[in-house]
Design a protein around this nucleic acid. Sequence first.
DNA 1: CCAAAAGTGTTAACAGTACACCCATGG
DNA 2: CCATGGGTGTACTGTTAACACTTTTGG
Lengths: 243, 243
Amino acid sequence: MARKKRDEAAIDAAAAELMRYPRAAVAVDLVVFTIIDADLKVLLIRRGEPPFEGAWALPGGFVRVGPSHREQGEALDDAARRELNEETGLPPGSVYLEQLYTFGESERDPRARVISIAYYALVRPTLAPLVRAGGDAQHAGWCSISEAKSRSLAFDHAKILDTALSRIRGKIDYSNIAFELVPDTFSIPELRAVHEVIKGTSYDPGNFRRRFKRMLTDGIIAPAPGKRITGTKPAKVYRFQGR
Amino acid sequence: MARKKRDEAAIDAAAAELMRYPRAAVAVDLVVFTIIDADLKVLLIRRGEPPFEGAWALPGGFVRVGPSHREQGEALDDAARRELNEETGLPPGSVYLEQLYTFGESERDPRARVISIAYYALVRPTLAPLVRAGGDAQHAGWCSISEAKSRSLAFDHAKILDTALSRIRGKIDYSNIAFELVPDTFSIPELRAVHEVIKGTSYDPGNFRRRFKRMLTDGIIAPAPGKRITGTKPAKVYRFQGR
DNA sequence: CCAAAAGTGTTAACAGTACACCCATGG
DNA sequence: CCATGGGTGTACTGTTAACACTTTTGG
């Protein structure tokens, strides 16, 4: 159809026009959290090349952009999932992943104008030991938050980490993200530990229990078989039903 | 110093390496809200060229990316502020602006791989009439939300609009964004109208008043001189103290 | 039996809800 | 004086917070 052909031509012309302007590299950076030894940890890698060679950084990488307007490359979410899998070896789908914020100051990367779309991920503690980050344990690993903050991270990664921390601290109160940081079956005290570690406060065991017992009647969590042996009175375990 | 020189050279090499990969165009799109006639409005412009010629779209534009790694161009927030000023003519600083979400699916723009960082803005109703969008009233204007949804917007702008609506609907409950949609001095019923229009529900006048009277004792709002004449009993006006 | 943590009960304060009612104004 | 919406009072309900208490385990 002539109309369609004309539109195609117009788009080709517009595409060519667009190409005349400078473009930016697009990256995804990942703030991957887990809980180990009742402590919130973040995954860091040690940079092997300049800039910031030898410094610690958040895992991440460039989004695959196609060579033309007909072949545009992968979606941002797909890039984040791919990087997450490459850096942790964890099966995709086993980890909670959500877009966090986009960082695009100029000069944030000395090599080029790089726009970084940051994501955060929550890894269940049962999966955390399986992470052989980048295949090289010496150059990557779980790092406590205080430790991460004392190391001066590459680029603006300290700011990204802070943004991620604020996000999960805010969101844990009104969402179900806490369930992403416990095993598939969990006891109420385990869930409470997650809240305490993230918020940095302690909760009354009785009141906390009641708060989550409501979820039982609402069908958000359900009793699961088995108990959690803790050295004292064993705790009942539950399973998260949402998703 | 030799060390510094070597680092510079390494960065230049890395920059050259980066340039070999395809890059993406980076845009900012704006969801500009205001309230007119007790109705939530969004600013739309009519596209003058392909693709989606003649369709309605959110205002926005490309981020200025510098030509080299030494000259990287403007920050994302600055680009958003600049576009906002260009499209509305409103003085920067008079409008609340916040990053919303980044949309980067492939094929979302047929011309090229375009990553769009969406922002939302809240314009006080007193400023809304001053907006001569793009200088051409025929090709831009305030549009009610239902109307905007019935028009099929260009690109993925319908999705961006939905995301912005969810954001402000969620955020109005626990933040002070409602104060950005009333004049500098406002009455409690005016503030209630803002909440009602955004949430789509109605609030009990007495209960709503009490809820915001608490802000008075907390110092978040303060009495302001003058009254609001409404045809019935005049209402006291207040001023928002935060910021 | 003792320590320690799971789990239950009780109470007071507070915030949200529904609704009755009074007050100031324009017509 | 009446309709209308601003503004106040009140009783009820549900949620939160503090804390005493009972239960079940390992040592």
